Simulated scan of single mutants.
Amino acid sequence: MEPSSDDAVSAARALPVVLLYRKGRELSEGGHEADTLRELTRQIAEIKGAHFAGEFDETCSYLTHPYLVPDDTLTVAEARKLGVRSVRDLYGGVVPFPFVATKLIAHSLPDGATVAPPGWSRAFSARTASLVLPGYSVFSREDARNAAGALWKGGRVRIKRPCGIGGAGQALVADTDELEAQLDALGDGALQAEGLVIERHLDGIETYSVGQITLDDMVASYYGVQHLTVNNHGHHVYGGTDLVVVRGGFDALERLGLPQDVHEAVARASAFDAAVQTGYAGVFASRRNYDVARGLDDTGALRCGVLEQSWRVGGATGAEVAALRTFRNEPDTYLVCASTREIYGNEVRLPAGACVVYRGVDAQAGPLTKYYALGETRRKGA
């Protein structure tokens, strides 16, 4: 006797529930960000053996405690309201103050800073100073001028909006006039409310991704290299990441015998991650990703430092999903190579075995295809 549709619905409801949660970041319905997030959430549910029940609805009563995939990092207050208590409750992260989830914590305040947000930890900034590029976080025009003036002694500086993604919200400034123009465009009110990062500019930059993910009983860590591509408007933007993912923590990565540049990136990211756990009470994350830059400043000095953290679904998540699925299905596999790509335009050739997470025409971005692909895997004893 075939099961009825009611039986199928009951069975689905009995499974653990995975939900997409929109914190409020503006994602247009049908846009590439929203559609990508939805598809990745569906695949995370599949790996967990759970039921993807769409978007979180606070008016609904869920039969099982839901697992959330938020579109942004949650605050402690938001997490409590949603019932998120630990890394087993979400694919993302939780912070005590909104600024902790942004680029701002990568740098200290300038000497004599006049403005700082509630909860700012000067002790954390002191502990991580050797792990990041020369730079400052500022919340006033006076502090911005002082920070830029100190950094210009070593060459040009880059100013960054704290929540910019994929290189957006950045500008290169070489003198006072250029700085003032950028500050005028931002406005003093936004500067005090949001903050701004002022950082040493690097040329010939290479950006590494270093991260760790926890899903149920699985812990995996990775390193990788990011790639740029040209979008439909002729701008260089994020184009994907190649990852090497291993079972276990950051120490499992270091046992691989990494090249010196990769070893340095992993060491800085893992030390920054450890500092966060003790520097800001209440932080926890099941998806912890750090961008680490390596390049030359205007004096010719080689610099390497953590740029920012991401405790939410990001550009490398497709590759993370590929690795987690492999680890779940193949218990003897301990290492996975996987990659993500974002390709603009209509002429897109997919590699064999590629998994498409978005393919369409976005209202702002134009024709765009996003996919991930599985590469080499290694098994114990092989």
Score class of each variant (00 low, 15 high):
G279I: 03
A181E: 11
L196P: 03
A285Q: 03
D217E: 11
S5N: 10
A293F: 03
R22E: 08
R145T: 12
P96E: 10
L74I: 03
T241S: 13
A269T: 12
D362S: 12
R378S: 09
L196E: 07
V210E: 03
R325I: 03
R379E: 13
A50R: 05
A190C: 08
S221D: 09
D242I: 09
E330L: 08
A365S: 14
G164F: 05
D242P: 06
R22D: 07
M1R: 11
A113W: 07
L215T: 09
L191K: 14
T207E: 03
E206F: 05
V115T: 14
T207M: 02
D251S: 15
Q309R: 13
A293V: 01
V276T: 06
G300Y: 09
M1V: 09
G154Q: 11
L253H: 13
R287D: 11
R145M: 10
V245E: 04
K103H: 03
D175G: 14
G166A: 13
K370I: 06
V245Q: 08
G187V: 10
V157L: 11
V262E: 01
V173E: 12
M218K: 15
V356S: 11
Q170M: 12
H107L: 05
Q182F: 13
H236A: 06
A265W: 01
G30M: 03
N146Y: 09
I205D: 00
V313P: 00
P259N: 01
N346P: 11
R158H: 08
Y208N: 02
D203R: 15
S108C: 11
S221T: 08
L68N: 03
V132A: 01
S209N: 14
L133H: 00
D217S: 14
Q226E: 12
P70T: 06
